[in-house]
Design a protein around this nucleic acid. Sequence first.
RNA 1: GGUGAUGUAGCAUAGCGGCCUAAUGCACUGCUCUGCAAAAGCAGUAUUCGGGGGUUCGAAUCCCCCCAUCACCUCCA
Length: 507
Amino acid sequence: MNPLHIYNSLSKKKEEFVPTNPELVGLYVCGPTVYSDVHLGNCRSFTSFDVVYRYLMYKGYKVRYVRNITDAGHLVGDADIGAEDKMAKTAKALKLEPMEVAHKYTVGFHHMMDKFNNLPPNIEPRATGHITEQIKMVQDILDNGYAYEVDGSVYFDTVKFAQEKDVYGQLSGRNLDDMLSESRELKNQGEKKHSADFAIWIRAEENTLQKWDSPWGEGFPGWHLECSAMSTKYLGSKFDIHGGGEDLKFPHHENEIAQNCGACGTMPVKYWMHGDMLLLNGKKMSKSIDPETGKSNSIMPEELFSGNNEIFTKGYSPMVVRFFMLMAHYRSTLDLSDDALAAAEKGYYKLMEGNKTLQELVYNGAEALTVEDKEVNDLMDQALVDMDDDFNTPKALSRLFPLVNKINSFKSGHIALNTISASTLERLQKVFKEFLFDIFGLMDETAAAADKDGAVLDGLMNLIMDIRKDARAKKDWGTSDQIRDQLNALKIRLKDSKEGTTWSLEK
RNA sequence: GGUGAUGUAGCAUAGCGGCCUAAUGCACUGCUCUGCAAAAGCAGUAUUCGGGGGUUCGAAUCCCCCCAUCACCUCCA
């Protein structure tokens, strides 16, 4: 097996992936805060790590994939100036229980993950279900002297931690001296000793909706803490891969490391992975409102699928969007535009049609091997090497398309099929399918439904194609073209070839 | 202001010291196929990688300067 290399955000280098425990790889990905619908940018991140998860399994690793749901503690502003919890804010606005808000958006999130064909994680823990664990972690950090309590709230002592352990700032590349000197000038620090400190337990006010008993009185856990506590619980105090969006590097992941170190004394994660942002109009997609335009620079997945939006001329299906995401490396920004999506749509159909053609190829005659055999095998090998190189999906895809050309040539007879060996064809059929569906996680949206409706459609299409065939035999081009053009308007494409006519449905 | 990225054909992305007179998808042009198309195949389309210097036998890839864009700096995947 080729070694897998992963770019580690902590060392800023590609490193060979050597799991701590080869029997069970631990993968933790920061999930959503369920206070509103996920936007497309969120979906890119989860899709990137879905490919990571899939490829690890493809390489034969047994993986425990943990992705949390944050349903408490995520504040709109800073804790020590009385900022509001995001969940509570939505709950009040919609006149719902916080639990209702969490449930509503969790269901929506799962639905969207299904649409993108992202596999569910093995464990999806929620913050509110792990209050005891979080309280214990706060206590551990206090016991180790890296936190202090002020009037029912507990703050992480970033300064002390930074002075004693040479860890803080490492992930986000922050110069701590700058941070410390800079913030000395700041006033209005509230209860915190230092502005770089952050709340790990927050005192509840009378109107706080979600609160729990703790040794420090009623309160709720701080953002960052849930990830530390839950990753430790399910993956141990040291695990392999932690993923999330680039924008979580600081403060979220930096503080997560600090909490884990502060509680357990060890660096929690071997490989940190960060996906870059999805751009819209050249800017980061984000839900927050731009003060200049008064709008948020984002699009909801459903709006993109349906075409019901002001940005794009038409809708693009979930698999087209997934394919579009695969066309860029996860560590690069990806710019969303009509042209780019239209290109992805064509490419996606080409791949799917290529696979269908490939699976229908039947080997016949004696082998008469040529250089073709090596070329086909090399392309497959290279695609796998590309994936081993930090999950380089765009590079791997660039190997698959030349294979589609070969496949179509085999079908048309432009290249004789027996120029590759029977076993090469078998391998191609297997590997190509694995790439599309197991590794890239695509689904074939062009496949006719295998239910009653699908059978009816098949029957109707056969009838129509028979009528057209008769018309063509009589050189009745008017009827023939009418059938072709009107089906085309229904997005049913007829493909004439020497062997006869086939059809496919574009969505 | 601090920190970190990026700038590759019309568009979106790969490549990150010699395999690059630059790869993939889309778009575009020509040819084959076709009744005409579509689909498919083949060929072509950047003598060149933001601009200018430098290092090197050799640079899209390394260094310096400039220009432009983006991200993070306690809301964000």
